[in-house]
């Protein structure tokens, strides 16, 4: 039960952060990526601030803990391989991010606006995920 409440509360905090920081506005994202045009660099601060909070925790606090407050164990990605799949996937992701000014977090948070384009984006995103599954299966599953 507590894991659900934790997920709900942290999801809400994350979603509030996305709105407050301006990440849910596609024009801000595209402005941030438009380094040769009307660059809006302030979104870099969002990432820097988030890392400034998360990095000390992951580096110095987490290694001293044996298990989460609610739940059996800490789960983190095991893979350390920097392979074609990672780079190609990230490259494709970046193109989609630039084309639309949206990524998964802001798109989900954007449901709150009941904006048709958000629902269109999410539907396309889920199809894209399934296409990747089809391409990857059955050899490699993340």
């Amino acid at each position: 039960m507590m894991i659900y409440l934790t997920a709900l509360a942290t999801g809400a905090m994350f979603g509030a952060g996305l709105v407050v920081s301006g990440m849910t506005d596609p024009a801000n994202i595209q402005g941030f990526l438009d380094v040769t045009g009307a660059w809006r660099p302030h979104l870099a601060l969002v990432m820097i601030a988030a890392i400034a909070v998360a990095l000390p925790f992951f580096q110095w606090v987490l290694p001293r803990l044996s298990k989460p407050v609610y739940g059996a164990s800490f789960l983190a990605p095991l893979s350390t391989a920097i392979d074609q799949r990672l780079v190609l996937g990230a490259a494709i992701f970046g193109i989609g991010w630039g084309v639309s000014g949206l990524c998964p977090g802001p798109a989900i948070a954007g449901i709150a606006y009941l904006e048709p384009q958000i629902f269109g984006f999410l539907a396309a995103m889920l199809i894209g995920m399934r296409l990747a599954d089809r391409l990857l299966s059955p050899s490699a599953k993340a």
């Binding site: 990605p77 639309s100 998964p104 995103m125």
Partner: peptide, 29 residues
């Protein structure tokens, strides 16, 4: 925010973001 993307941007962007994040095992967060 104002959403005045063209619909091809919405569809292509969503498709590539979904495909790429799954293939590359993650996104911005």
């Amino acid at each position: 925010p104002v959403f005045d993307l063209a619909w091809w941007q919405v569809a292509l962007g969503g498709l590539l973001v979904g495909f790429g994040s799954r293939l590359g095992s993650g996104c911005t967060s």
